[in-house]
């Protein structure tokens, strides 16, 4: 039951292809379905979408895949993610030691923008180079399987002293990593921060960048005890250069539990 329902999210993102390929041939199994893609998770205060991020971490570091994660943490320290992922059955500290999880603690380090004298690019140029160096130093078998994750973009803007242009420059450069190395890119952002703006340019720019957009929202009908919110997944798959055009749209409800998250279609719960 759990296995199947959690596939509702994976199926929507396109992660379930993985299993099928695995059965077909081993070479395709090694391929990370999200590679070359930009995944944007949008959430709000009432409904946090960070569990999607955690799920993706767990999925990328699972024994079947050979993925490497570069994690830019602006919001939480390492211990937080370590505790959370341990509950999901994934040992982050061990993964870090084995060189599959690179944690860039942007809280502890001087935030990029605080570097005096580097104001022309907000320090993001330096950060980008660190990422690039990390990827370049990876062993060959991991090089094509990198996921860059950002938690979260709105705090990145804070670190850049509100200069969304610098953040956009940085994200554009991260986007070039996808075509250069075949990386995937996952970012979490908060939608409601921009809700008062008439035209939230920054949010729109991000949405244009995204191939997969995951929105976590509260239920339209109000609070419910056994449903914590709904997820809408827009899988555009537009810029897939291999020519395969996969696009789908999914909407389902979820309930965050102690160790797992239940995903189910509206009304399918008794």
């Amino acid at each position: 039951m759990d296995q199947r329902s959690s596939n509702l999210l994976e199926e929507a993102i396109g992660l379930d292809n993985h299993h099928r390929h695995q059965a077909e041939d081993a070479a395709a199994a090694a391929e990370w379905p999200l590679s070359l893609k930009v995944v944007l998770i949008e959430d709000s205060v009432e409904t946090s979408g960070s569990f999607v991020l955690h799920h993706l971490i767990k999925r990328a570091l699972s024994p079947q895949s050979s993925n490497v994660i570069i994690f830019l943490a602006f919001s939480q320290p390492f211990s937080h993610y370590d505790r959370l992922l341990r509950k999901l059955g994934c040992n982050l500290a061990a993964q870090r030691d084995s060189g599959r999880f690179f944690f860039f603690d942007m809280l502890q380090l001087q935030s990029p923008g605080r570097n005096e004298g580097k104001t022309s690019d907000g320090g993001f140029c330096e950060l980008y180079r660190r990422i690039q160096k990390t990827i370049a130093s990876l062993p060959e078998k991991y090089k094509k399987q990198v996921t860059v994750m950002i938690d979260d973009v709105s705090l990145m803007e804070v670190a850049a002293f509100g200069s969304s242009q610098h953040v956009l420059d940085f994200l554009r450069y991260c986007h070039t990593l996808t075509s250069e190395f075949g990386c995937s890119f996952v970012a979490l952002n908060h939608e409601d921060i921009y809700s008062s703006m008439e035209s939230p340019t920054f949010l729109l720019e991000l949405e244009y960048l995204a191939d997969v957009l995951i929105k976590a929202e509260p239920l339209a009908t109000g609070l419910a005890a056994d449903v914590h919110g709904q997820l809408t997944v827009l899988n555009r798959g537009i810029c897939n250069p291999t020519g395969s055009f996969v696009s789908k749209i999914r909407n389902f409800h979820f309930r965050v539990k102690e160790n797992t998250v239940d995903y189910f279609y509206p009304g399918s719960r008794t």
């Binding site: 690019d121 140029c125 980008y128 420059d169 554009r172 450069y173 070039t176 075509s179 250069e180």
Partner: peptide, 12 residues
């Protein structure tokens, strides 16, 4: 103008 719009890579 996609790969290196601001010259970060060139500089590096």
């Amino acid at each position: 103008c996609y790969t290196d719009p601001l010259g970060w890579k060139e500089q590096q």
